[in-house]
């Protein structure tokens, strides 16, 4: 346990002692703010009955930031240590592979949550200026952020895997970007592609990240979605663990 906390703290520290962490958060905050402005401007001209969270978090604004920022967060986790050689000093201390994987995942997830905090600011500001409080209901915000968190778990776990497989941060970033984009784009296939019908279509609609986020942003917490994200996260973390362990396979 001590090793886990020590490692998590160092990993988180790794984001913040250099400029990298601040830069990622600043860039994401800037994009969030900018897209928020665009959305609010749009709302003024074309009012809609949808909640603001749904407008924002199930549109390209949110996904653009999510898909771009997550590989940047996770790419360094293992790849940098392997490249610089500190992976060797790390793995020759009495820590288990599981502790290392979990610590890196936790640190990345905490950083990811910090990354989305500024968007809470946007919402609070908007709340000051709207007449209808129902447009930004607390429950709705809760379910939206639960959705963001669960997506984060999945994307961080995928990023861990991508980073564990290589020594190059760029390769890691590109791999996790591809994984993330693939999952995201698959959301648009069901019902639109003639080739996909029957059970394949059902399967695809179950893994449609876009639709899941749409539900969360509408205030709908579907238990199936929660299980989906948590189980996939565990699955990717398990793969990461195996990759890290593979060094010691004979």
């Amino acid at each position: 346990m001590q090793a886990y906390w020590t490692l998590t703290r160092r990993e988180l520290g790794g984001f913040f002692v250099s400029l990298t962490g601040y830069l990622i958060i600043a860039a994401a905050a800037f994009l969030m703010g900018l897209s928020w402005v665009v959305m609010v401007e749009q709302l003024q001209s074309e009012p809609t009955p949808q909640p603001v969270t749904q407008l924002y978090y199930s549109t390209q604004y949110f996904w653009l930031i999510l898909l771009l920022a997550t590989p940047v967060i996770t790419m360094r986790l293992f790849a940098l240590e392997k490249y610089s050689g500190t992976f060797e000093t790390l793995m020759t201390t009495p820590v288990s592979e599981l502790q290392v994987v979990l610590a890196k995942f936790t640190a990345a997830l905490v950083f990811y949550v910090l990354l989305w905090l500024p968007s809470l600011g946007c919402i609070l500001i908007l709340r000051q200026f709207i007449n209808d409080p129902a447009a930004l209901d607390t429950g709705l915000l809760g379910s939206t952020f639960l959705g963001i968190f669960l997506l984060g778990c999945l994307f961080m776990a995928m990023g861990c895997l991508a980073s564990a497989m290589t020594r190059s941060q760029i390769t890691a970033a590109m791999t996790s970007f591809t994984l993330g984009c693939t999952l995201f784009l698959l959301s648009f296939l069901p019902g639109r592609w003639a080739v996909v019908a029957g059970w394949q279509n059902d399967l695809l609609s179950h893994i449609a990240l876009f639709d899941h986020m749409n539900d969360f942003a509408r205030g709908l917490v579907d238990f199936r979605h929660v299980v989906f994200y948590l189980s996939l996260t565990v699955f990717f973390l398990f793969l990461t663990l195996r990759v890290v362990e593979s060094r010691r396979w004979k």
Binding site: T6, G13, T86, T89, P94
Partner: peptide, 25 residues
């Protein structure tokens, strides 16, 4: 101590040694 002595360049000396000591239990 491996060849080329890899360290975390962004950490301070004392901080690094404390991190390693805690890691080693």
């Amino acid at each position: 101590m491996p060849e080329n002595n890899p360290l975390h360049p962004e950490m301070r000396v004392r901080e690094y040694l404390k991190f390693r000591a805690r890691l080693k239990g």
